[in-house]
Design a protein around this nucleic acid. Structure first.
Lengths: 215, 215
DNA sequence: TCACTCAGTAAACACCTGTTCGCTGGAGGA
DNA sequence: TCCTCCAGCGAACAGGTGTTTACTGAGTGA
């Protein structure tokens, strides 16, 4: 192969990325577990044996892809929450950010939704780990924000806060999966999905506000 | 093959069922899309060519499996709601029923969770259809029950009721997936998952009770 | 009893799979 | 300049794949 640009290390990274992209393209139709190493290599433009210069097997490639995808979402969510204190504001802006991310990286979210429960062992675990991180970071931001501004969550037990953020994060991922499932171009259907998801989140927030009300 | 019992039609049904069971056993490790027709036939105890006497391909077998699994859940949920009118009671008893079903048919729910977003096209659509049915039936029961007893939901728009039942059904399936993900034997971990899921559902119900409160 | 139906068989087909091997040729440090 | 490194190559391997074909023989209605 002729490489027009960059040093050797840069070129290796470039090929590695085209392997990741190849999997994203191919998992539009099938799950990672049903792809073949040869198929992926072919799509990435290298010979099967070359695959092993980058990953020992497809499962490892999947784990790398999880970290790239959910790492990006995690960063975006943290950025959008920076400086905000109201939990309503945090929730609303997080949905916006999610929507933006899903639209910008549709294939990555399809991959995550696909492999969340359906994938190979290590891939599934990698996704679970990333989602737990997202949930915990959200919990921290909600608590510090609320403690400073309004004391809604300040009396909650840690366990209940985790319960809430898990609910929210799970809802986010389900929403992302639902959006990705909408055939592209059907923007009316997509808007309906987003509208429903937003109202569901509002309902959850209302529930949280009255969580400690006397029964 | 020697068949000790039953007529020819009954024997055919029996073999068909062992094909379904074979897939349930094999999808503990892989997704349906990465199974081979030969693997499934071998596990079911027939020769590959015999497979075509029952299904044209693995995807059709998957659809049949979805109908068997979620059809059973749907029936169980409807039965448990019969005669109940309080929405809290309906919710609590539905969670009990779900838990009972998941424990009794662990493999089926693992299959559903796996294929919900990750599966082949027709299988994914079949799951979506069944879940929509479950959600709509729940909506009907909530409305008629509440209208008769307490008028909490009576002022809701149809759209909002659907929004709520979708949220609940999605939460049920996520819960089932989480339970199935717990390694068997770790009953403490399982109880924690169930406890969290129950509290999340309570929070949703509280949110619903205050949905129409003035802001 | 006899003819027929059809679930399951056995063999063959062309093709795709993961992995190992030794090789090549350009990049990069001395 | 020369030497080393190593990303990507091409070929070979044993074995698994979906599907078709012609068959067998037990269950069944007339």
């Amino acid at each position: 192969m002729t490489h027009s640009l960059g040093g050797r290390a840069a070129q290796k990274l470039h090929t590695r990325q085209s392997l990741l992209d190849a999997v994203l393209r191919l998992t539009a139709d099938h799950s990672l577990g049903s792809l073949s190493l040869r198929e992926v290599s072919r799509q990435a433009g290298i010979v099967p044996a070359g695959f092993y210069r980058h990953f020992p097997d497809l499962e490892s490639l999947g784990v790398a892809l999880v970290e790239q995808s959910l790492g990006g979402l995690r960063t975006a969510l943290r950025a959008v929450r920076a400086g905000l204190t109201s939990s309503e504001e945090i929730a609303r802006r997080s949905v916006d950010a999610l929507l933006r991310e899903v639209r910008a990286h549709r294939e990555q979210f399809r991959f995550i939704a696909r492999e969340r429960y359906g994938g190979l062992g290590r891939v599934r675990r990698a996704i679970g780990d990333q989602l737990r991180l997202i949930s915990e970071e959200l919990a921290v931001d909600l608590l510090t924000g609320e403690r400073a501004a309004a004391p809604v969550l300040s009396r909650w037990s840690d366990e209940d806060v985790k319960m809430l953020t898990d609910l929210i994060v799970n809802h986010m991922i389900s929403t992302a999966a639902a959006i990705v499932d909408v055939p592209p171009g059907r923007s009316a259907a997509e808007r309906r999905v987003v509208a429903t998801a937003t109202r569901q989140l509002q309902l959850v927030i209302i529930g949280a506000r009255h969580w400690l009300d006397p029964a």
